[in-house]
């Protein structure tokens, strides 16, 4: 029968496997900036060193938690995560364990790409958005390059989720398929990239900043968010400028959507319990198709009036983006900035 280790034995095993030659006893007495530096140095090392095919960071995280967000205790028995087990440890052993859990926790969040407390981890403002200058400064200058890569990747994932929630699909897709033209490679998970660390971080930060700048430019021009999105959807990407002609086309669509489309797909017969589109009543499917076909005709009309040939063709990504926007508008997801006020 497999012997279950005691808490003390487990602690010693972990120290041997993950913290050899690290004086955890001394380190557990550190505070403030010194403690932060120690923690970062350990996480950087664990993110870099591998045993087998996995980094030590993921192996250490797996000792305690599942891969879910929120540090859920792993199912396999570990006396170090139970109160009973911890109560068998001496004070000095508990101090070492607390430090190990601190380091392992940051490893968990980094390697699995969950947001974490930036103030505690880096001593910067706790905000993963690219407008956080302290964070950007830290990431682009730190010697902890693996940490910087993983954090930048978390920023990218966070931005994708924000843009998805806000229905800003050109931005969502640009980040989802972010590509380094310099290194001819997709910007993947840091553990699967050949892009050098500084360049990796820069590629992500640059992309996030460009999208943010474009959005802020739209705000300065007092353009409504739906209008900015329509403009960019016509482009099919997040452009780096606002084109007058494209804005005119976007405005024509905006006006149509405002008057003729908003809320038209909020139907009494809509079945909110349906698990698929085919389970919706035929009347819902018919009305939706009719309303969206009318919008498609409007897109073609605007295309002919305002745009050059080959723009927003029926089979283009732009056309798909506009149809998706129309569907949301029809469902009442329109001018959401008014609801936010």
């Amino acid at each position: 029968m497999k012997q279950i280790k005691t808490a003390k034995e487990m602690l010693e095993q972990i120290e041997k496997d993950f913290f050899k030659e690290v004086n955890l006893s001394e380190a557990s007495k550190l505070e403030g900036g010194e403690l932060r530096d120690f923690r970062l140095a350990q996480v950087e090392r664990l993110l870099t060193e591998e045993h087998g095919s996995a980094t030590l960071a993921i192996q250490l995280s797996d000792m305690f938690w599942t891969a879910d967000e929120g540090r859920k205790i792993a199912e396999k028995p570990n006396p170090l995560t139970s109160l009973q087990g911890q109560q068998t440890l001496m004070d000095e052993e508990m101090s070492r364990l607390r430090l190990i859990l601190d380091v392992a926790g940051l490893c968990h969040d980094m390697i699995l790409h969950f947001k974490f407390d930036l103030k505690e981890a880096f001593g910067v403002k706790n905000d993963f958005w690219v407008t956080n200058k302290q964070l950007v400064e830290w990431l682009t200058t730190t010697a902890y390059e693996r940490i910087a890569m993983h954090t930048a990747y978390i920023m990218k994932k966070f931005a994708i989720s924000v843009y998805e929630y806000g229905h800003y699909q050109p931005a969502q897709d640009e980040l989802a398929e972010l590509y380094s033209t310099e290194y001819h490679e997709l910007v993947r998970d840091p553990d699967r990239t050949k892009i050098p660390p500084r360049a990796y971080v820069k590629t992500i930060i640059d992309a996030l900043q460009q999208i943010e700048r474009h959005w802020q430019r739209g705000r300065r021009l007092k353009l409504r968010p739906d209008l900015v999105m329509l403009h960019d959807e016509i482009y099919g990407v997040v452009p780096r400028l606002f084109d007058k002609g494209v804005l005119a086309a976007a405005q024509a669509l905006y006006d149509y959507m405002d008057k003729e489309l908003c809320g038209r797909l909020v139907l009494k017969e809509y079945n909110y319990n349906a698990t698929s589109w085919n389970d919706q009543p035929e009347s819902v499917r018919r009305t939706t198709t009719e309303v969206l076909n009318r919008f498609a005709d409007k897109v073609r009309e605007v295309r002919a009036e305002y745009l050059s040939e080959d723009w927003v063709t029926d089979d283009s990504l732009s056309f798909s983006y506009l149809m998706a926007h129309a569907q949301r508008c029809g469902s009442g997801l329109w001018r959401e900035e008014d609801d936010a006020q």
């Binding site: 994932k157 994708i160 998805e164 699909q169 969502q172 989802a176 398929e177 990504l317 798909s320 998706a324």
Partner: peptide, 13 residues
């Protein structure tokens, strides 16, 4: 679940 459905639709086609 990072790509938008319009983009995925174009790729699927």
């Amino acid at each position: 679940a990072e790509l938008s459905l319009p983009k995925l639709k174009i790729q699927a086609i």
